[in-house]
Amino acid sequence: MPESLATPEPIQRLIEAFHRLPGIGPKSAQRLAYHLVRTSPQEAESLARAIVEARERIHYCSRCVNLTERDPCAVCADPRRDQSTICVVEQPLDVLAIERSGIYRGVYHVLHGILNPMEGIGPEHLHIDALVARVAGGDVREVIMATNPSLEGEATVMYIQRVLAPHGVRVTRLARGLPSGADLEYADTMTLARALEGRQEL
């Protein structure tokens, strides 16, 4: 390619940086990079500052491992929350989803991932040791497993149940079955079996 047609080096670096982000393919990375270099210097600077600030000011909560500006995080520090009930989730966004329901009054533990042996993600890559230490060291009565109802989610639930067994804590998981608006005809065996197991008295 003639030198005059090559992408300028700073834009190329920006494209590569965007391409490393999750869900961003090469074309999206190019679009974002070219969009940014066309914006006003103030807008570009404000984005750069927001990235640096978020990276500098956000840390892991020393109790629940959620992302937070202050340690402990707002949920862990709230005296009205039930500290004896821990809801275990895969990602920080799952905490927001459960908080939106407005029903749960306990605290959380964020694993930052899920067991996925085929992709080489084992227990050592998740914050399972921190959960075990929390249960071992405190007055925890119940651990609610709120991982996704997938094969990897099931593996994570069973693994955590096994490592928590010596501590005698009650381990429960979110109910599984037919989602609202579902069509029984299309339901798979696993979902139907779980829905029948979890049926309720009317």
């Binding site: 579902a182 069509d183 299309y186 339901a187 798979d188 696993m190």
Partner: peptide
């Protein structure tokens, strides 16, 4: 997507 009709039929080890 939660409303996917395929979802449960294409889980690994199925």
């Amino acid at each position: 997507k939660p409303q996917s009709k395929l979802r449960g039929h294409v889980e690994p080890v199925t």
